[in-house]
Simulated scan of single mutants.
Amino acid sequence: MDVTIYHNPACGTSRNTLALLRHAGIEPVVIDYLAHPPSVAELKTMIADAGLTVREAIREKGTPYAELGLADPDLSDEQLLEAMVKTPILINRPFVVTPMGTRLCRPSEAVLDILPADAFSSAFVKEDGEPVLDPQGKRLG
């Protein structure tokens, strides 16, 4: 299965998502989007494929969102996308692309929505100790 994750190794949610993919036996293409941001066209496609608006895909916390004036409702999607590509920390993370769909994996277990139901056969626990999969690999919660 061809899978791509737009990853930030400093982000716990991103690390948990990557760990879930690897737990499924998938070695995804890992793109450090801070060093190698997607193009405006790629970002626009990912956001649309994930069923989000551009504003829903912007990360405000821990970013220069406010300083850049991005809360201005008069800014167009194109202007916001340009800002996100120019300052990639503004891109919420992690985005995961699989043949089954695209998701902004917040929380990390959202990745399960775009993986085969039988991809797991054992338990999985997040870094913080929160269980995600039971001993048979079935989704909890």
Rank of each mutant, 00 (worst) to 15 (best):
V40C: 09
P135E: 11
Y65T: 11
N92G: 09
P88M: 02
Y33V: 15
T53P: 00
H23R: 00
A10K: 01
L104M: 11
E130W: 01
G62L: 02
T87D: 15
G101Y: 08
G12W: 15
I47W: 14
R103P: 04
A117D: 10
P131Y: 07
L90S: 02
K86A: 11
V85M: 00
E78K: 05
R15V: 14
G69I: 02
V125Q: 06
A119R: 10
E82G: 06
V111P: 13
T53V: 05
I26R: 06
P38L: 10
V3Y: 08
L52W: 15
V40E: 04
P9L: 03
L104A: 13
L18A: 03
P9R: 02
R106V: 03
L75T: 04
D113P: 13
L20T: 05
K86N: 07
L21K: 11
L140I: 15
L80G: 03
L81W: 03
P94L: 05
P94T: 08
E60L: 13
L140S: 11
M84G: 14
I58C: 06
P37R: 04
D74H: 12
A71I: 00
E109W: 11
L75S: 07
T17D: 13
L21Y: 14
A41L: 05
T53G: 09
L75A: 03
A110G: 09
G12R: 15
I31G: 11
D77F: 12
R106I: 08
P131L: 12
A41Y: 00
P88Y: 06
V111G: 07
S76E: 09
T102S: 05
R139S: 15
V85F: 00
T17P: 12
L68G: 00
